[in-house]
Every structure is written in C-alpha cells, then in structure tokens.
C-alpha cells in the first residue's frame, strides 16, 4: 500500500502551480501551508480577505507578533515591503472584481462541472461561510486542495455534489494526497499521480471517470 502525500507535500505541489506575478488568496486550513513552499525567485502577492495585500509569513520572533496583523485564519503574519492595508469592501472588490489570479481553497467535494462544496456539512443547520463564496465566485482560477477521499473512504471528487454548494463551476484544478486532477469541459483529466499510485488506484478512489493522458506524470514529492 503506497503512502498518501502529507499536507505539506500537497502544499509543495500547489505552490509550484502559482506563477510569478500572481495575486493569490489562500483559504483557511491546509491552503495556508502553501506560502512555505513558493519557489525562490517567484514574486507572488498574497491577499488576505481581512484587508491585507502582500501578506508575508509568520514573524520569526514571538515578540514581533502583532494582534493587528493576522491572517483571515487568525494566525500571526507579516506584511511584505510594498504591501498595503485596505478595508473590507475593497478587499472583496479585489476578490469579486477578478483581481485574484488564483484562490487555493479547502473542499468537501468537487463536481465534474467545477461546482465546489466547502462551507457547510449536509447535516448541519448552518455553516461558517466566511469569504468562501465571494472568493470562489470571483477568482480567475480556483484550486481545490483536499484529501482525495473523506475519512470514511468516500470519494470527494464526484459527478454531482451531495454537499451544499459554495459556488458553481469555479474549480479549475484539484490537488489531493493522491493526484492532480484538472476540471475540463470534457470532464476530469488525471494529470499527475502521487509516487507509488497508479491511475487505476486513483480511479478507484474517485467518484467519476478520469481521463488518463499518455504522458501521465508523477508528483515530485
């Protein structure tokens, strides 16, 4: 049995996808790890919906933690040189206005048409939506970052959602602990597999057909 990728290994793979010059929003949870794996020399600006453009990593020293400088996930961060503070309406103008080249968001489920579910469990009376719906609806690309299957083994990459919708047809690519899967008008395309997994292994853990190209790659982990 092959090992699935760790959260950090998925983050390292997502980081490779972020291009020089992009403005990127990282969702709460696993996506925030991505910031630690940006390849040297790429100038990527991070947007945090609580009004930070140019969010930097956690301060190196405990005494430099500033309660007025926190990420949307409420963790301590820094501001890079040339960063800026904006108010909430402007921050979401950035998100909805198409300025985000990519958003990396956690997910419960992704559907074959790119529908995203990540804000509320089906059985819950209510959820904490935060900025998820605005960011998913507005970003140029939405990368779903998640485990390939739920804790009970159920596939999270499915034909149609059974979880409550966050935003329609927004996910462009999925990064999991087993694979990288593109969401295309023709359906899911398996682009990469984690080391030790075959296309058949990934298909068995996926709730919809995966097209497998001849040049299927292995994730460098």
């Amino acid at each position: 049995m092959s090992e699935r990728l760790s959260r950090d290994q998925i983050a390292a793979r997502v980081a490779l996808e972020l291009e020089d010059g992009w403005l990127v929003n990282l969702g709460i949870g696993m996506p925030t790890l991505t910031v630690n794996y940006i390849p040297e020399g790429r100038d990527i600006l991070f947007h945090s919906e609580n009004g930070i453009i140019g969010m930097g990593p956690k301060p190196a020293r405990e005494e430099d933690i500033d309660p007025d400088l926190m990420s949307a996930g409420k963790g301590p961060v820094t501001l890079i040189p040339g960063g800026a503070f904006i108010h909430h309406a402007d921050s979401f103008a950035v998100a909805r206005g198409g300025r985000l080249d990519a958003a990396v968001l956690g997910a419960f489920q992704v559907a074959v048409n790119g529908d995203l579910a990540n804000w509320k469990l089906p059985t819950a009376k209510s959820g904490s939506v935060g900025g998820a719906m605005d960011i998913a609806a507005g970003a140029k690309r939405v990368f779903a970052m998640m485990t390939h299957t739920a804790k009970d083994g159920e596939p999270k990459i499915v034909e149609t959602l059974s979880y409550p919708l966050t935003a329609k047809t927004c996910v462009t690519k999925i990064f999991t602990d087993m694979a990288v899967v593109a969401v295309t008008p023709e359906g899911y395309v398996l682009e990469e597999v984690a080391p030790g997994f075959s296309a058949e292994d990934v298909q068995a853990a996926t709730g919809a057909p995966l097209a497998v190209p001849d040049d299927l790659k292995t994730i460098a982990a």
Partner: peptide, 14 residues
C-alpha cells in the same frame, strides 16, 4: 442567526 457571505456583508453595509 443570519449567515451572510463576508463580501456580501461588507457590500451590503457599503
């Protein structure tokens, strides 16, 4: 409780 998407909340206020 009324849950409002964060950007919608900001814009409804604005």
């Amino acid at each position: 409780l009324e849950v409002v998407p964060q950007g919608t909340l900001a814009e409804r206020l604005r």
